[in-house]
């Protein structure tokens, strides 16, 4: 009898595991981290995996530990994600993502008349506001426009 192949993502020796990502947001997590086709390290991810708190996505990046600043951007689209730094197959550090107070060059301003959407040599800049009622709101530091919905759809 053929051995049942394990299709689940395997443990990694060294790198970063981003767990408890809001279901369906794994690809946006890669975008927000600036990971595209020219990224050399092995990336694996699971979408809609069953977890204790409902469905979740998981992203594993092998051989590379990302900076805290890069990882915290994930909080914009998935505030409950956790970061596990792995060395020798062991989790050496586990943190929740922390919402940054400022982000640059990550999200496009949804005001089409904003100077940051023109051909000027600048990056978009937002201060990040969190409130219990409205969740995460981005405040454009150029045009003062507020973005509280569809942040994931406006990632650069």
């Amino acid at each position: 009898m053929k051995e049942k192949r394990n299709l689940k993502v395997e443990a990694i020796e060294k790198g970063t595991v981003i767990d408890h990502i809001k279901s369906g947001q794994a690809l946006n997590v890669l975008r927000i981290l600036g990971i595209s086709s020219d990224f050399r390290a092995t990336i694996s991810f699971v979408m809609n995996a069953p977890g204790a708190r409902g469905k979740k996505d998981v992203v594993k990046i092998e051989g590379k530990e990302l900076s805290v600043e890069e990882l915290n951007r994930i909080a914009l689209i998935s505030p409950k994600a956790t970061i596990n730094i792995i060395r020798d197959f062991e989790v050496v550090q586990k943190n929740n993502v922390v919402l940054p107070s400022y982000v640059e060059g990550v999200v496009r301003c949804t005001n089409s008349n904003c100077i940051s959407n023109s051909n000027e040599p600048i990056k978009s800049k937002f201060s990040v506001i969190q409130s219990e009622e409205e969740g995460v709101t981005l405040h454009c530091l150029y045009c003062e426009h507020l973005i509280s919905e569809n942040i994931a759809e406006n990632l650069l």
């Binding site: 904003c114 100077i115 045009c143 003062e144 426009h145």
Partner: peptide, 13 residues
């Protein structure tokens, strides 16, 4: 005076 929102802030940079 410029038609785009936020142009003065950018100009100041």
């Amino acid at each position: 005076r410029h038609p785009l929102d936020g142009s003065a802030r950018m100009a100041a940079e």
